[in-house]
Amino acid sequence: MEVLQILISGVSQGCVYGLIAMGFVLIYKATEMVNFAQGELMMLGAYLAYTFINVLGMSYIPGFIATVISMAIIGVVIERGVLRPMIGEPPFAVLMITIGLGFILRAVAGAIWGTETKTLSNPFTGSVARISDLSVGYENLAIIVGTLTLCVTFYLFFRFTRLGIAMQAASQNQLAAYYVGIPVKRIYSLVWALSASLAAVAGVLVAPVSLLEPVMGFIGIKAFCAAIVGGFGSLPGAILGGLIVGVAEQFANLYLPPGIAATTAYVMLLVMLLVRPQGLFASIQQKKV
């Protein structure tokens, strides 16, 4: 029973990684950029929700929606201001710029909301679902259900809608996409809006189980490990990678000494790169010449 209980908490933690990893994958899939600030966007989303719900006194659902919308706007602003000038620059420069962006966002959050930890009030706290002997917190259930819904939605979106396919085209070859009439720039803005609002959802769902602090974005690095374990550029891969890393971490916490347990995600990443560099769900294919 204990094993099952750990499994469930691992799955819920894994879904958090998966949600953030999905943000990475979304931007990567559509713009071929790697956004290192995804964790910080999540942090910003959680703080905005805190502002709307706790400070301004909105109720949960409207506060949630307001957060998602304002994060989408922030995403567009970031894309227009910082990443638009970088179109056509080497990928390394884009990577560096998102790292810098992460530092700025953390400093801004620290300046506005202070560095002491905060808690976001929400309707789930304290209520527990019981299935025979197992007990699952509603906040964990919310994370799992939310992640699965979003994953399926985005999968269908990329597979079947015009916009989703246009996004993939823009990623695969910018110039060719221009030639066939895809508004690549507008699509980039849209992807950033989507990705930032996804980060907002992740932030709101994570906030009840972890505390709000400016450094909570560091979880993004572990999510990155999850994205690579699952296969960078694949949405189901991101969720699966997240689940694997999350569950492995919970078991490591139980059975391994604390120092080693903290490195689980990173060790898994390095092992994965050694054994199967393209990840579980390969989206990297060798081009045959």
Binding site: I97, G100, F103, A111
Partner: peptide, 22 residues
């Protein structure tokens, strides 16, 4: 006296250099 002023400034300078003087 803002906390995190230094890393924030580091980030800002990094971004500005990459955009304007790579």
């Amino acid at each position: 006296q803002l906390p995190g002023l230094e890393p924030g400034l580091f980030g800002l300078i990094l971004v500005l250099f990459l955009i304007f003087e790579p």
